[in-house]
Amino acid sequence: VLLLQRQVDNPFTEQDQHWLETFAALAAPGVVAQRRADRHLLHHVLDDCRSLWRKMTGPRHYTWKLVASAILVFGVVSTLLPATYRVTAKTSIEGQVQRVIPAPFQGFVSKSWHRAGETVHAGDVLAELDDKDLLMEQAKWQGESDQYARKLREAMAEDNLADTQVLSAQYDQAAAQLALVQSKLDRVKLIAPFDGILVSGDLSQSIGEPVDEGKTLFEVAPLTHYKVILKVDERDVAYLNEGQSGQLVLAGMPGDPLELVVKRIVPVAVAEDGLNYFRVEADLLGHAPPLLRPGMEGIGKINMGRRSLLWIWTHHFTDWLRLQTWTWL
């Protein structure tokens, strides 16, 4: 409503009335829009809801009604229809028993016959360390041992008790050193402990290089027994239990899914790529395929039982929402 006032001696003319009517017609929509824009956000939401409800229940607007019906049906079906919930994790294959072959003593690489990826048999020589220094040391201690043995016999023949005790100790020391050198010579050749495949180790490019005692030179895994390692996201590990079954598809054999069963859940989180994972060990069911090798990677899925589709699609978001609510409240 526009209220205008003038003096009695200066009344509004008909032309003024027409002008005011035109101005009011043009200004009214702007005033209404300004008033609506100045309202609280809640009023805007309520108006939009009322408008949407009128479209849903009133005549026409068939597209809106069709969309709403589809959303309603989808929500009911996703809430009531159960499906198998499966946890997905990156997976790798490891040998059930993985034997480490270290350097038996400090020395130099002399020869190498096998490298990672090759199949070996029990007793095969994988590599050999240089034994020249050991042979010289063996000759040295062998000479000293013979010398002390001769002197010891002479002292015993002369019945010299003091010299006998000293020479006996020296002889035992030389014999011990000789046995130690012989033990090293017996381990110069690095032998495969069983039939399997070399998981790691390649000394073909390291001939003549020094190696420290205890350094891992090879790793051997059997070809018949494997274990599956799954990296399960910390958000899903709470749903896991030992004995649950699943499937594994490897990148090298995408058309041959493998059955597995969870054997052990390692209760230690490992950070990788900005996320925390738990190491889960599983066993393969049935016979391993001939092409299966340690180190192969793929995707594993563990069956968690039947859950509603709505829960499957939204439980990660709801868990995140609970965490954020707990953080800020």
Rank of each mutant, 00 (worst) to 15 (best):
L291G: 01
H61L: 00
R307E: 10
L198T: 13
L66V: 10
K227C: 10
T216D: 13
G58Y: 05
P289R: 03
P59T: 10
E209V: 02
A24H: 10
Q205D: 12
A251L: 13
P290H: 06
V109W: 07
L42T: 12
P29I: 06
V266R: 04
P193F: 08
E144Q: 07
A37L: 15
A83Q: 13
G305A: 14
G274D: 01
F12H: 05
D124T: 09
G298F: 05
W328G: 02
V45L: 05
A169Q: 15
Y277K: 02
D273A: 12
R6Q: 13
G305H: 15
R322M: 03
V237L: 06
R150Q: 15
E297T: 08
S183M: 05
N241V: 07
Q98A: 15
L240M: 09
Q138D: 00
Y226W: 08
G255H: 13
G252C: 02
Q147V: 07
S245R: 13
H40R: 13
L135D: 01
R293E: 02
G143K: 02
L167M: 09
K140A: 06
T79M: 08
A116Q: 06
V77M: 15
F105M: 01
V120Y: 07
A282P: 04
A28H: 02
L248S: 05
N10I: 05
N241G: 12
S51P: 00
H316C: 00
V181H: 04
L126G: 03
Q15A: 15
D124P: 05
I312P: 01
L260C: 03
A157M: 11
R150E: 15
S308N: 15
K301H: 10
G286P: 09
L26R: 12
R150P: 03
T57E: 07
W141R: 01
V97N: 14
L329R: 11
W19T: 15
W328L: 15
Q173V: 06
Q98D: 14
D9F: 11
D236M: 07
A89G: 09
L161C: 00
